[in-house]
Amino acid sequence: MLSELLQGTDTGGFLVIQDSSSCTGRHLLKSFINAALNREENIHVLGFEVSEEELGEGLNTSAPQRLHFHNAYSDPLGWTDHLTFTVHQFCLDELTHLVKQTSQSKPATLVIDSLSWILRHQSPPAVCKTLQQLKRGGAVRAIIGLLHADMHQKGTVGSVCHLATSVITVAPGMKGDEAVAKITKRSKSGKVMQYEEIFSIKDDLTVIVQSKPSHLEHKQTDPEEQQMDPTAHLTFNLRLSDTERKAKEKLALPFVFSKEKKTALLHSGQGSGRILYEPDANDDYDQEDPDDDLDV
């Protein structure tokens, strides 16, 4: 699955590389940039965390006009008068103008290094809104963003990953040069697939998958929404065994009448009880005026 993602994300795709302090995902991010350059795509990089020189180490420099680095590293908050990209410019209008100003005829791929820097200075709803607009607006072909999961609350990470079509979570491997990629891919139909692969990255940023894909899960709902069984830790049993179920089916309910009981109730036979009333002399019952005893 990792090799397939490196071959190119679909139009309108949003890929999140999620890392932590124990395992960086920037090397994998650079591998995706290099793979896109090898496919002769136009790349726009919003660089907040490293300089252009550091990010460009190992990348394919045969066509530098296709790699556009927007310097948000020198002055990310706009405190000086230098013409650099700032975190406040992360909105649909500014990004669309930025990409179309330098882009070629084909839609470009937007790389964000990193989303964590933006989330620290803009509200998560505003960031998610901009990402959703970029996916639908057509200004960029695809979005690739690096996210440091241990810098944010779980809800913030979940909101960003919920927008993504693919999420790659990197973790340390057993060996020093290996890492584990836990991949969650969501198709357009809503189907969610999860894989786990062991990989390593060479000096030329080529990704080598060390083991075959391990298919973990295949389900229709969001992987973060796991339904808990409410009967898992009860002190009594709510389920019936086969013997108990058969006994329940044979049990005659008190409000359900059998055919024989219905016949006996509807058709009275000999010896059935009847109530006979004979008026007494003191009843003073008048046939012509039944209401004579009423004081009206």
Score class of each variant (00 low, 15 high):
Val256Ile: 15
Ser31Trp: 10
Leu28Ser: 01
His162Asn: 04
His267Glu: 02
Leu266Phe: 11
Ala181Trp: 08
Gly158Ser: 06
His88Cys: 02
Met1Asp: 01
Ala252His: 06
His148Arg: 05
Lys182Phe: 03
Met174Tyr: 03
Met228Ala: 10
Gly269Ala: 07
Asp291Met: 11
Ala139Lys: 11
Val45Leu: 13
Asn60Gly: 00
Val50Cys: 02
Thr102Glu: 07
Thr156Tyr: 05
Thr80Ser: 14
Gly78Ile: 11
Phe199Tyr: 15
Thr165Gln: 10
Gln220Cys: 08
Pro230Asp: 01
His152Pro: 01
Ile198Val: 12
Ala63Arg: 10
Asp222Thr: 08
Ala171Ile: 04
Glu57Cys: 02
Leu294Val: 04
His97Ile: 03
Ala63Pro: 00
Gly176Trp: 13
Arg26Leu: 10
Thr130His: 11
Ser51Lys: 12
Lys129Gln: 12
His88Ile: 06
Lys261Ala: 01
Ser114Glu: 10
His68Asp: 02
Leu134Met: 12
Gly58Phe: 10
Gly155Leu: 08
Asp242Pro: 10
His70Asp: 05
Gln270Asn: 04
Arg136Ile: 11
Ala63Lys: 12
Ala281Val: 09
Pro64Gly: 01
Leu2Lys: 14
Asp10Lys: 15
Leu266Lys: 15
Val256Ser: 09
Ala164Phe: 03
Lys129Tyr: 08
Pro172Gln: 03
Ser268Leu: 13
Leu59Asp: 00
Phe257Ala: 09
His44Val: 12
Glu224Val: 09
Cys128Val: 14
Lys129Met: 11
Asp177Val: 03
Ile183Val: 13
Glu225His: 13
Val45Pro: 01
Ala139Arg: 10
His215Thr: 10
Asp229Ser: 12
Gln132Ala: 13
Cys91His: 14
Gly269Pro: 02
Leu238Pro: 12
Asp204Ala: 05
Ser51Met: 02
Leu234Phe: 04
Gln287Asn: 08
Asp113Gln: 15
Ile201Ala: 00
Gly25Arg: 15
Leu146Thr: 01
Val50Asn: 03
Asn237Val: 12
Leu95Met: 11
Phe48Trp: 06
Gln194Asp: 00
Asn60Gln: 05
Glu278Phe: 13
Ser272Glu: 08
His82Val: 01
Ser62Val: 10
Leu146Trp: 05
Leu110Val: 12
Gly78Leu: 09
Gln270Glu: 04
Lys248Tyr: 04
Val16Trp: 09
Leu37Gln: 10
Ser241Gly: 04
Ser21Arg: 12
Val45Glu: 00
Lys261Asp: 00
Ile33Leu: 06
Met151Leu: 08
Ser123Phe: 10
Arg66Ala: 02
Thr86Gln: 01
Ser3Pro: 00
Val45Met: 03
Leu55Phe: 13
Ser166Gln: 07
Val170Ala: 03
Thr235Gly: 05
Gln220Phe: 07
Arg186Asn: 02
Ile198Leu: 07
Asp204Arg: 14
Leu147Met: 09
Leu253Gln: 13
Phe48Cys: 02
Leu28Ile: 10
Cys23His: 11
Val170Glu: 04
Gln227Met: 15
Pro230Thr: 03
Thr61Lys: 14
Gly176Val: 07
His27Gln: 06
Gln153Ile: 01
